[in-house]
Amino acid sequence: MRFRRFLVLVVVALTAAGCRPAAVPTSGGLPSYDHILVVVEENHSYGEIVGNADAPYLTSLGTNGATMTQSFAVMHPSEPNYLALFSGSTQGLANDSCPHTYSTENLGHQLITAGQTFAGYSESMPSPGYSGCVDGRYARKHSPWVNFTNVPSSSNLRFADFPTDYARLPRVSIVAPDLCHDMHDCSVSTGDTWLKNSLGGYASWAKTHNSLLVVTFDEDDRSADNRIPTIFFGAHVATGGHGERITHYTVLRTLQSLTGVACTGNSCAASPITGIWN
């Protein structure tokens, strides 16, 4: 009892002094983050991004974070991979069609049900809660949360709504850049510059605020192995290349483990990434 009172007094003193206690590990030994931000880019292989002179910012994130050197998309084309990353299933979809409606379990619904928070931020989406398939450079197929009836429309936000005070972010956020800035229609250099200018502030903040940035891609350039870049950057991340073979299902299982929610669908056959944490 005396030790417990002493511990409380230490935490209060640290907080009053402006110091943050270290992240409390989850039951699986993973850090427990205050905020996790996932960004999904488009249609480039590992070799087209990591170490490419046209992607200096992404390369720097990998150098100063954890680069997963054996990361693979689930399939081609794009949309099934977004569904896999969000729900643990491609939902039987094998194309990029729209609209679709699902009621199965997914990361957003899990977090909200568990009393946590989730939001998807889509660049160039015309209005919060928008459910149309296409508007200018916005494409619903890259915003999987819109397809699930158990995720409220209030979680479907524009990137224009992304807070400048990062402490106001949900526990987990997913950012879908538009068709130019996700490198689908525009160059690697354009997408890399957008990421630095738009989310570089969050990346720097995350390092000292118990938060995490994950950058991954939906699929590669249609090569045989579908090897894609996946980078973890932020607090408690061990820098360097990591050769563990992962897929979108592995990334989802890791996000679920980091936030203490259950696996879903094919993420239950994957193990969370454990070797990249300090």
Results as ranks from 00 to 15, higher is better:
A176Q: 14
D178L: 03
D178V: 11
L179K: 03
L179Q: 14
C180A: 09
H181Y: 02
H181R: 10
D182E: 03
D182I: 00
D182Q: 03
M183P: 04
M183E: 13
M183Y: 01
M183C: 04
M183H: 03
H184S: 10
D185C: 03
C186E: 00
C186I: 08
S187N: 06
S189F: 07
T190N: 06
T190H: 09
T190F: 04
G191P: 13
D192V: 14
T193E: 07
T193W: 02
L195I: 05
K196I: 02
N197A: 12
S198A: 13
L199P: 11
L199H: 10
L199T: 14
G200F: 02
G200E: 02
G200S: 04
G201Q: 09
G201I: 11
G201L: 06
Y202S: 03
Y202K: 08
A203V: 14
S204Y: 08
S204M: 08
S204V: 05
W205Q: 11
W205N: 11
A206M: 09
A206T: 14
K207Y: 01
K207G: 04
K207T: 15
T208S: 08
T208D: 01
H209T: 08
H209P: 12
N210H: 15
N210G: 12
S211R: 14
S211A: 15
L212C: 13
L212N: 13
L213I: 13
L213G: 09
L213E: 10
V214S: 01
V214R: 04
V215N: 00
V215G: 00
T216G: 01
T216V: 07
F217C: 07
F217I: 12
F217Q: 04
D218W: 07
E219A: 05
E219F: 07
E219W: 04
E219D: 05
D220R: 09
D220I: 13
D221E: 12
D221Y: 06
D221I: 01
S223M: 08
A224S: 15
A224T: 15
A224F: 07
D225F: 11
N226R: 12
N226H: 09
N226G: 07
N226Q: 10
N226E: 02
N226C: 09
R227Q: 15
R227I: 12
R227S: 06
R227Y: 08
I228C: 05
I228G: 03
I228S: 03
P229K: 08
P229L: 06
T230E: 08
T230A: 13
T230M: 12
T230Q: 07
I231P: 02
I231R: 02
F232T: 13
F232P: 13
F232V: 15
F233N: 14
F233I: 05
G234D: 10
A235W: 03
A235Q: 13
A235P: 07
A235C: 04
H236W: 06
H236V: 02
H236I: 00
V237H: 02
A238Y: 00
A238F: 00
T239I: 03
T239P: 00
G241C: 05
G241P: 10
G241F: 03
H242V: 09
H242T: 08
G243M: 04
R245Y: 04
I246R: 13
I246W: 07
H248F: 05
H248Q: 14
T250E: 02
T250I: 06
T250N: 13
V251K: 01
V251S: 00
R253F: 11
R253N: 15
T254K: 10
T254N: 07
T254D: 05
T254G: 06
L255Q: 10
L255R: 12
Q256M: 11
Q256I: 14
Q256Y: 11
